[in-house]
Write a protein that binds this DNA or RNA. Structure first.
Ligand SMILES: [Mn+2]
Ligand SMILES: [Mn+2]
Ligand SMILES: [Mn+2]
Ligand SMILES: [Mn+2]
Lengths: 219, 219
DNA sequence: TAAAATGTTTAGATTTGTCTAACTTTTATT
DNA sequence: AATAAAAGTTAGACAAATCTAAACATTTTA
């Protein structure tokens, strides 16, 4: 199946939205891809034609098994390139998503196998996301929940959901990265903000919006 | 100046044909890019509009100073990626041109600077071609001529002009690579074939076509 | 449950890059 | 110089990806 760059981007976004449960809507996908609903409808017809999605007018979009497999391969390429950029070229985690967004479209089985080997076959990317293997299979993920839902005090950061430079730079400033161990000092009901403390540093407060995008596991 | 992938490929091909002296013709460029003369005429109008080429109907195509600068930046990216693929991912020289043909279009100043650093700022690529620096400047090249024109007996291979897998695989089979030292045993006037010898191995004959694509320097 | 609001699709355009077929210009040959 | 051949251009078409504006469908809300 030979996909265009646009088709690959759509497939990947559909996969992402499907992961976050519920139906993938025209408008939701348009928002995710920073395009217009009309464009999504057009592309939906093409992807249906190629049997990569199930789609009926007004009924939302879902990846077929084949579409899901394609998505995982694109995600694999994306995340391996991110590892390369961070591990080998010393980019920081807020810079790599955009570059990987382009590099992921260079299609060569051999290139990706070699790249993965070169990187030591990593299983998670710089944002804590799992990297599918060459067959498109995702390994067992460690149990993780978002910080706003965690109910224990001592936690370790395992991933970030939002890859925007805005969030990642905020986390840099606060000293929060993958593997950071933190303690919840207080949860404020009023706005669901959370006061946290890292090691011996002074405690600080983060908004609900930030806490929803930090994935953690109990220590 | 923001160029499309197609525009970048055209600019690079024009540069290549210009290097080989004489005028760049519509047909020649179409052949180089594996497209049709009509398409070249269309693109010529666009590139002229963007002031990257000088072009008048029926008068051939030439890069402007700006076009030349753009070409050198694309060539820099292409050759650095080739180095990466060969030096870090263990690809062989006949496999990398096609991959670099895609990777070269990922535009990020920072990426290329980091990549170059990571590779130790190489100055020649796996085919012996010089790599422009970050300003698009080409260093002084060592004097080299094609094997068919060389008039001394003992020579060192410095580059290959043709990057097709067909030629490169032939050279692999014959044990000819960059830096290989060879001795001309005989030149046959009839078909301009050349008998050569590498080290203590038995001599063999190569066609004029091959010899035209091997660049050498006298030892 | 009817009206309003929201979400989705269609129709028709636009941009980019390509093509074929017909035509024009330039160059080579008699 | 006239003609033939080769090279180059134009006209018109098409596919991919996008858009705006208008129409249509579904969902919400009063
Ligand atoms: Mn992408
Ligand atoms: Mn990532
Ligand atoms: Mn290219
Ligand atoms: Mn090369």
């Amino acid at each position: 199946m030979n996909l265009t760059v646009a088709e690959e981007n759509y497939i990947k976004s559909i996969y992402k939205l499907e992961e976050g449960a519920e139906a993938v809507t025209t408008t939701g996908l348009a928002y995710e891809l920073d395009t217009k609903p009309a464009s999504v409808t057009d592309m939906a017809k093409k992807l249906k034609e190629k049997k990569l999605i199930d789609y009926e007018k007004y009924q939302g979009i879902n990846l077929t098994a084949e579409g899901k497999k394609a998505a995982l391969h694109i995600i694999r390429r994306h995340r391996l390139w991110e590892c390369f950029l961070v591990d080998k070229l010393a980019f920081s985690w807020e810079e790599v998503h955009e570059l990987a967004e382009e590099l992921e479209h260079v299609r060569s089985e051999k290139l990706i196998i070699r790249l993965s080997d070169f990187l030591g076959n990593p299983t998670i990317d710089p944002h804590g996301d799992p990297i599918p293997d060459a067959q498109g299979k995702l390994g067992k993920q460690r149990a993780q929940i978002s910080l706003d839902q965690a109910r224990t005090k001592r936690l370790e950061v395992t991933a970030v959901s939002d890859k925007s430079a805005a969030l990642l730079e905020f986390l840099n400033a606060k000293g929060i990265r993958l593997g950071t161990q933190l303690e919840v000092i207080e949860r404020y009901e009023f706005d669901n903000s959370i006061e946290i403390k890292i090691r011996n540093q002074p405690a600080f407060t983060i908004s609900e919006q930030v806490s929803k995008n930090i994935m953690v596991r109990p220590l």
